[in-house]
Design a binder for these strands. Structure first.
Length: 470
RNA sequence: GCGCCCUUCGUCUAUCGGUUAGGACUCAAGAUUUUCAAUCUUGCAAGACGGGUUCGACUCCCGUAGGGCGCGCCA
């Protein structure tokens, strides 16, 4: 049995913007497969578009991947720096007769396309320089180098996701390899870089499926080995249309800022287009163990915030109290510079975590629900809480204070004392609990109130109750 | 217009010719309960359409419709 080479995967974004959700999933699938097989996961920044590439975008991509927990194995390759090598390959193809010089001007090509469109025939380069030698009038004129693509037969891509996909070669035109300024095009650069990097598996978005055929023609012309292709179905917005800015958050950093956990993003994005039977909650460790290319689906998926929420709620509940509290504090400090938490507040937050966790879908929500922990005295009461604090209720609270003011100060004892008090007053527990809740949290909905009182501590809790008493 | 891809509950998906078509999210009801959650139970809900192939099709083939992607000296 022939030994299979170690897989080499890559993620190759162009740095023209932030890392969006689609790119993040492509990176995730590549990363998972590399980790699953013990192969390599490489990063290549496709910055050949000098106009649109920015260092900020490069940083955003690195940050996004790092936040997602997707680590890459070698120094990232910057494509533009390899232009010399790309030119070299183009020259080789020229020398071998696999490419030719085309002197058609952009205006001329525009006109050609306009005419084709008008005639209703397919728009493609007509090969006007394919078999034409430049004359004296072409001397010193700019030219591009085009691939001399086969004109008959077909080009077949064996795709692990999409199956066997074939194109009749007469549908494919002679694409540009080298621009008139001598710089390589994306098509050439990708093929050369993948070859030089030893890439064995090209896993990318389905929007590149058509490109695979063209890239294969270059690979065949060079006599290079064909990589395994896998074109992932695209992610759409909730309305089924292409994911765009109007769907709200697109950048992975936006999801981070909305309070989603990296583990959530990995799990959710993995399940968008990949499955392992009925498994829904798939921690990264399991994902690495189970991931395969065969189980990738073929149809586009819609991004569903509700499901994202439920996955996030799950991982929030699963996290250890200390770790989650640290995460929440870091989040709060990043989102609101200047905000800080002293040791007392931090300890209080950790203690309150079991109460908070089942009630939050995001870190934002968690912090919101934790608000009452961080005030000195009763937090500002909302409308419903103010309404609950009637004169009678305030009087009740004043009578409750001496009953509560004792040790031990824990939820069970506090509840017992309050029940006894309610009975003595001829009231139901709820009649006492609700005013108490309003006094301690400023809300009418909160975690179990005796747990809240316990977390707040005897001194702080009593201060708040006294302040609301009459 | 041409080429390529896709089509199971509202959404994500399982099924790889024989199932009461399963799970998850959402939504609804119930249990629990000091409020709100969490949790548990139950329920609503699907094979785009039309032809074949077959003893038997969600599953294989063809067509139609709908959706998506591509058709740059962008990537």
């Amino acid at each position: 049995m022939a030994e299979k080479p170690t897989p080499v995967l890559r993620f190759a974004p162009s740095p023209t913007g932030y890392l969006h959700i689609g790119g993040a999933r492509t990176a995730l699938f590549n990363w998972l497969y590399a980790r699953h097989t013990g192969g390599k996961f490489l990063l290549r920044i496709e910055d050949t578009d000098r106009e649109r590439s920015t260092p900020e975008a490069v940083a955003a991509i690195f940050n996004g991947l790092a936040w997602m927990g997707l680590d890459w194995d070698e120094e990232p390759i910057f494509q533009f720096a390899r232009a010399g090598r790309h030119r070299e390959v183009a020259e080789q193809m020229l020398a071998k007769g696999h490419a030719y010089r085309c002197y058609a001007t952009p205006q001329e090509l525009d006109q050609m396309r306009a005419e084709q469109k008008a005639k209703g025939v397919s728009v493609r380069y007509d090969g006007r320089w394919r078999n034409r030698e430049p004359g004296p009038e072409q001397h010193n004129m700019p030219y591009v180098v085009r691939l001399k693509a086969p004109q008959s037969g077909e080009t077949i891509v064996h795709d692990v996701v999409q199956g066997t996909v074939r194109w009749s070669n007469d549908q494919l035109d002679d694409m540009v390899l080298l621009r008139s300024d001598g710089n390589p095009t994306y098509m050439l650069a990708v093929v050369v870089d993948d070859f030089d990097m030893g890439v064995t598996h090209v896993i990318r978005g389905a929007d590149h499926l058509n490109n695979a055929a063209r890239q294969l023609q270059i690979i065949e012309a060079m006599g290079w080995p064909m990589p395994v292709y896998g074109h992932l179905p695209l992610i759409h917005g909730a309305d089924g249309a292409k994911l765009s800015k109007r769907h709200g958050a697109l950048a992975v950093e936006a999801y981070r800022d909305m309070g989603y956990l990296p583990e959530t993003m990995r799990n959710y994005l993995l399940r968008l287009g990949w499955s392992h039977g009925d498994e829904e909650i798939i921690p990264t460790e399991k994902a690495i163990e189970w991931f395969n290319l065969e189980s990738i689906g073929r149809s586009a998926a819609r991004f569903d915030m509700k499901k994202l929420d439920s996955v996030n709620a799950h991982y929030i509940r699963e996290m250890f109290d200390g770790a989650l509290a640290a995460e929440a504090i870091a989040f709060a400090e990043r989102m609101k510079p200047g905000r800080s938490f002293d040791a007392t507040l931090q300890a209080r937050l950790v203690a309150a975590m079991p109460l908070l966790k089942p009630r939050a879908k995001t870190l934002v929500e968690l912090l919101e629900k934790a608000d009452f922990l961080f005030t000195k005295g009763t937090p500002p009461a909302d409308a419903a809480a103010s309404a609950a604090l009637t004169g009678q209720a305030r009087a009740l609270l004043s009578r409750l204070v001496p009953e509560l003011d004792a040790d031990p100060w824990d939820a069970v004892s506090l509840e017992a004392r309050t029940r006894a008090f309610a009975e003595k007053e001829g009231l139901k527990l709820g009649d006492v609990a609700q005013p108490l809740r309003a006094a301690l949290t400023g809300r009418t909905a909160s975690p179990p109130i005796f747990d809240v009182a316990a977390v707040l501590g005897r001194e702080e809790a009593l201060t708040r109750i006294r302040a609301q008493g009459d």
